[in-house]
């Protein structure tokens, strides 16, 4: 258990330190890199809890895809840091107020938390013993039986978000020459080449 404890405290400390660095780093690219470090250590914590499927999905989705696009955008931004700091004191009261409201809400939530056993079994899918089935199977069993409508609804929300992003950014420009691979491949010699007899001393 000593090793697990050491690993837990290492992951936890690095997660918190990286999270603090995300908001305190001066360079936004460094912030994103620290965010990635925090994701990674959170995945480590999931592995320690025995939730290896969620850990891997966290790394694949957040670190492998979402954060790459974040980094992509942040690197391309041209940010003037002096200008960014100017409004700091002006926005401090309202920012602090929002922070305090969130903190109070969290405290309310924590104070009313009841550590009672969660619903783990249902008639449709009796929960198997934890060591009898991998957690990928276990997740699949609840996700596609009890929670199938919620799962579908989440998919629909994502679809709407995707269509929204496409509609917002779609624009058709005039005069863009696009490559049509099918048309190019279907072109034959008699469509492309014309043979003409040229008489000496004359032109076509």
């Amino acid at each position: 258990m000593v090793i697990q404890a050491i690993a837990f405290y290492m992951f936890a400390i690095v997660t918190i330190a990286a999270a603090v660095m995300v908001i305190s780093a001066r360079n936004p690219v460094h912030s994103v890199l620290f965010l990635i470090l925090a994701f990674f250590n959170a995945a480590g914590l999931f592995v320690l809890m025995g939730a290896e499927f969620i850990a891997m999905i966290l790394v694949i989705v957040y670190v492998g895809a979402v954060a790459v696009l974040f980094l992509f955008v942040v690197m391309m931004l041209d940010i003037n840091f002096a200008e960014l700091r100017q409004g700091f004191l002006q926005y401090l009261p309202i920012g602090g107020l929002i922070g305090i409201v969130l903190l109070v809400e969290l405290l309310f939530l924590a104070s009313t938390w009841l550590a009672k056993p969660l619903k783990t079994a249902s008639p449709a899918s009796p929960a198997p013993a934890a060591d009898a089935v991998t957690n990928t199977h276990a997740l699949g069993r609840v996700l596609y039986t009890d929670y199938v409508y919620l799962f579908q609804a989440a998919g629909l929300v994502l679809l709407v978000a995707m269509i929204g992003a496409i509609v917002l950014t779609l624009r058709s420009r005039e005069g863009v020459r696009r490559q049509n691979a099918a048309a190019q491949l279907n072109r034959r010699r008699d469509q492309a080449v014309e043979v003409k007899k040229v008489q000496p001393g004359s032109s076509i």
């Binding site: 499927f53 891997m56 670190v63 790459v68 957690n135």
Partner: peptide, 17 residues
């Protein structure tokens, strides 16, 4: 590990960093 192929996929998706 149980999720070996996901681990490989995760690591190869990190290569871009």
């Amino acid at each position: 590990i149980n999720v070996g192929i996901l681990y490989l996929f995760a690591i190869s998706s990190l290569g871009v960093y």
